[in-house]
């Protein structure tokens, strides 16, 4: 997964409201913005729409238009997103460390400073 995708996924999931919206959509085939807003007491339609846009740009949510309505569902390649999210959470912390202590240089053979592997 390209670093920009990971960053977008991290930014999208760093917000508890967006995590809750994604979790809610995942419990249904499809939901409209109105149906999502109805689930949360303190969340208006406009706020829901702007959260949905960020989730859609991060590739986590797909949009289907049907007349006046837009229906939202979880995109079908979700497993990578969990890995990208966890990677970014730790990566984010170490990037902050590097910029705080300055003079940071990442190793040559791991240009993004990260390697993912799976072991069984």
């Amino acid at each position: 997964m390209a670093p920009s995708d990971s960053d977008a996924i991290f930014s999208a999931l760093a917000d508890p409201t967006r995590r809750a919206i994604l979790s809610l959509i995942g419990e249904h085939e499809e939901l409209t913005a109105g149906e999502i807003a109805a689930h949360f007491d303190s969340l208006g339609r406009t706020a829901v729409s702007s959260h949905l846009r960020i989730l859609r740009l991060a590739g986590l949510v797909a949009e289907r238009r049907d007349g006046r309505f837009r229906h939202y569902s979880v995109t079908p390649t979700p497993a990578d997103a969990v890995v990208a999210f966890l990677t970014s959470v730790y990566q984010n912390s170490l990037e902050q460390l590097a910029s705080a202590v300055q003079g940071a240089a990442t190793s040559e053979d791991t240009p993004a400073g990260r390697v993912e592997e799976r072991s069984a």
Binding site: Y90, N92, L97, A98, V101, G103, T106, G113, E116
Partner: peptide, 27 residues
């Protein structure tokens, strides 16, 4: 498994001393 690697100019004892001090600026 997530492996992260950084090369930093600070020496090990300086970095080690930063750990756990509650300074949000270091991540």
């Amino acid at each position: 498994i997530l492996n992260n690697e950084l090369r930093l100019e600070a020496c090990p004892s300086e970095l080690f001393a930063l750990f756990g001090q509650g300074d949000a600026a270091v991540g």
